[in-house]
Design a protein around this nucleic acid. Structure first.
Lengths: 192, 192, 192, 192
DNA sequence: TATGAATGAGCATTCATTCAT
DNA sequence: AATGAATGAATGCTCATTCAT
């Protein structure tokens, strides 16, 4: 089914263009035309791959969620705990762009069932990954053995969003090193 | 003599109606008509008090920021540290509504200078209040004396946003007690 | 009936304010608010003296027509023929303002019966005055005796509008002296 | 393949529809909808070719100016001087329509830089053409050799506007023959 | 499939007019 | 008579969606 692969690849490419468009214009300002321009095609052309605008923007969110999940996945193998946890933060331009989109959806996810579910699933997974990383770290003796790991995992997920939000809104004041430092400081609390 | 209205009071009342409207319809879906309907007037009437829609939505954000700040202010006098820190979380319907608006602006604050500045100022103040509360707690011996308070303040601000975001997006899974518990657990890490 | 005199005086004063407002903002841009501001009252107040906006703007036109007619009337006694004919041109700020209004109505007079009639009457009178002035001049031997005075009167009325239009649209290029010179040159053609 | 349209041709066609609309409804009453209806399309469709209403109305004026200029251009070759000079007057329905638009802009040209410049340029050209025609006529011995041609050219331009204004406002009283007769009478003054 | 002109519902905004005070 | 807040119809403009080519 080569056609389908192409089709899916095109959808994915369009989704990434939508990410760029949302990051540049904002979720409430972005036009289909922006997405089309970045994709190098016309708006009518987009409609061959998505039924409507909402679907394109949903795909953009899904794209970002997938990328974040990939980073979490890769993080499991990181040697350093702080590096692992910081790997999803908006440390560079690509991740900043992704966070801009991610953060945009906070405001509307509560209104759309599909998005709410996507978010829910994503955080479930997230939390599981973080928990996994933490358990490894405890086993390695890197963290105190008496930690309430379930809670700590939630705290890290929350702190990650918190740092991401502020770094996205105020990137000048929240450089990569500062984000890392704050995460490191938190991890410090968890050590012996 | 014609009816004389207190412009500032009216602006404030409209801002609160805008908060309700944004919380109900979402920042990108809300119409001026919604605000007018909640305010019990016509859209044209809104224009006597605000130059345009954007200004109304900005006022809505400012209204929420002020409310959040008031809670922080009141929190300083709370007997319990966890109570104080949790007082701004979306624990009840009113605060949930406010958080819905607050969270909505995360996505667009990065695109509008005025909002970015408002956010920046807000977080500055926030952090100062948290720091203040923490210092009091250390003095009272409630917290370990060796904490990096600057960092901890940022962590609490971040964690607050993180919890708020998730509770806003997934209110069923994040009840008041769960929010409090997570904050309490974090404070636990800071104790002796 | 002192009340009525006051009332009429007020109407006249408002009409003049409307002239200023139209001259400043243009016939299509002017708001009742502008007129009210210049008159130092509120828009609601204007409605005690005129039934609606159109009536106010009509009064403004009538005001200008009256002023122009007054100048023509005064011109009959002018010693110099050119001075007489030039006296209605937009030579100074006041007359420029009047011409701005006058010229504005060219575009809409064709659409409104009342204005069309007002214009018609005005030009009738105008032409009669000019003819009168010309006949005096012929009698005094100032002009050639063989002129087709009826036509010349129409030409002068037309030329007056023509000069007025250009001086109104391009006041920098059409100073008082240039307007007068062109009229003088035309009169020159009528002399021996 | 999609329908390909010649943008410039379409703009020109829309401009002409705008001329008709302005002539029918007046510059201050005309709606985009009127233009669209005459053009046989929707208002949204107009926006593919013009950024906003003002631009459409400006194009309408430019369209009229071009037409008037064309007539002046053609007039240079006219055998009869009076025919040449009268050729731009509102002698028939088409030219009446154009004059209605032309005259409408007298009132607003003073307020908009673009229009002022367009008018200025137009009159410059106009005057040059008239001067040219006059010089030819003098050479042919049709006119007195001692005329101040510069002034006469301005007088003809002014008289043309004057006649056009009156014929536009009061078409019943100013038929084609009367317009021509007045111009002819003026030319009579210029002959030996 | 791709194109892009056309559509048309939707919305913010303006402003003359009304009316309770 | 005056005020000025409120009204609400009017309208320019946007932009997702459609569809003929």
């Amino acid at each position: 089914m080569p056609k389908i692969v192409d089709h899916d690849a095109r959808r994915e490419a369009i989704a990434e263009c939508a990410v760029r468009a949302v990051a540049e214009y904002g979720l409430d300002r972005v036009k289909l035309e922006h997405v089309a321009e970045i994709a190098g095609c016309t708006t009518g052309s987009l409609m061959h791959f998505f039924p409507n605008k909402r679907a394109i923007l949903e795909a953009a969110l899904q794209h970002v969620a997938t990328r974040l999940a990939e980073r979490y996945g890769a993080a499991r193998d990181a040697a350093d705990l702080v590096d692992a946890l910081a790997s999803v933060l908006p440390l560079d331009a690509t991740r900043q762009r992704e966070w801009r989109v991610w953060v945009s959806y906070f405001g509307i996810a509560g209104f759309q069932t599909r998005l709410r579910e996507a978010h829910h699933d994503f955080y479930e997974q997230n939390r599981a990954w973080v928990l996994d990383i933490l358990e490894d770290a405890v086993e390695r003796g890197e963290l105190r053995p008496d930690l309430p790991l379930q809670d700590v995992a939630d705290q890290i997920v929350g702190l990650t969003d918190g740092i991401g939000v502020r770094a996205t809104m105020d990137p000048d004041a929240w450089g990569a090193s500062q984000q890392r430092a704050l995460m490191a400081s938190f991890v410090g609390l968890l050590r012996a």
